[in-house]
Computed example of a mutant assay.
Amino acid sequence: MSRIAATVLGLAWSAAWTGLTLSVLWTWFVVPNFQLPHLSIADGYGIALILRAGLGLRDGEIKGSENFADAFQTLMLTAPCGCGLFLALGYAAKAWTKAGI
C-alpha cells in the first residue's frame, strides 16, 4: 500500500515539475518562433498529466522491493533533477541562438 501512495504522490510531483518545464521551454522556443500564445504552468501541468496518462505506468514503478521511504525519495528526486537538466540544456540552446552561432 505504501508503494501505491508513493507512486501517486510521485506522479503528481513529477507532473508539476514537467508542467513548469513545458511552460518555460514553450515560452523560450515556441512563442517567439511560431507566435503562439504563452503556456501557463497550469496548462503545462495538464499537458504533463495527459502525456503521463498516455504512457501508463512502467514495470519499474509498480514492481520492486523498495520500501515506501526509498520509493518516495527516488520519485521526489528524479523529477526536479530531470527537469532541471532539460531547463539547463534549453537555456544553453537559447543562449546559443541569441549569440548568433
Rank of each mutant, 00 (worst) to 15 (best):
S2D: 02
I4F: 13
A5C: 02
V8M: 11
V8K: 08
V8Q: 10
L9S: 02
L9C: 06
L9P: 00
L11Y: 10
A12V: 10
A12S: 05
S14F: 06
A15R: 11
A15I: 00
A15K: 08
A16M: 07
W17F: 11
T18D: 03
T18R: 10
T18V: 04
T18A: 13
G19R: 08
G19S: 04
L20I: 02
T21Y: 09
S23M: 05
S23T: 02
S23N: 09
L25W: 13
T27W: 15
W28C: 09
F29H: 06
F29C: 10
F29Y: 02
V30F: 03
N33T: 02
N33L: 01
N33E: 07
F34C: 02
F34Y: 15
F34Q: 15
L36S: 05
P37C: 07
P37H: 04
H38K: 09
H38G: 03
H38W: 11
L39E: 04
L39V: 00
I41G: 01
A42T: 02
D43I: 00
G44V: 01
G46Y: 08
G46W: 11
I47M: 12
I47H: 10
I47S: 15
A48C: 03
A48F: 08
A48D: 04
A48S: 06
L49M: 09
L49H: 07
L49W: 06
L51Y: 08
L51M: 12
L51I: 03
R52Q: 05
R52N: 06
A53D: 05
G54M: 08
G54L: 12
L55C: 06
L55T: 03
G56S: 05
R58N: 07
R58M: 07
R58Y: 12
R58E: 09
R58C: 04
D59Y: 12
D59W: 15
D59H: 06
D59Q: 06
D59E: 09
G60K: 05
K63I: 00
K63C: 01
K63E: 04
E66S: 09
N67Y: 02
N67K: 09
N67C: 04
N67W: 03
F68D: 11
A69D: 07
D70K: 10
F72D: 01
F72C: 08
Q73I: 00
Q73Y: 06
Q73R: 10
T74M: 14
T74F: 15
T74S: 11
M76K: 08
M76F: 14
L77I: 09
L77Q: 06
L77G: 09
T78A: 12
T78G: 04
A79C: 07
A79E: 03
P80A: 15
P80L: 14
G82M: 05
G82Q: 12
G82L: 07
C83A: 14
G84E: 08
G84N: 08
L85A: 10
L85I: 08
F86Q: 15
F86Y: 13
A88R: 09
L89W: 13
L89K: 15
G90R: 02
Y91T: 03
A93L: 12
K94D: 14
K94P: 03
W96Y: 13
T97H: 14
T97A: 14
K98R: 11
K98G: 04
G100D: 13
G100H: 15
G100N: 13
I101F: 13
I101C: 15
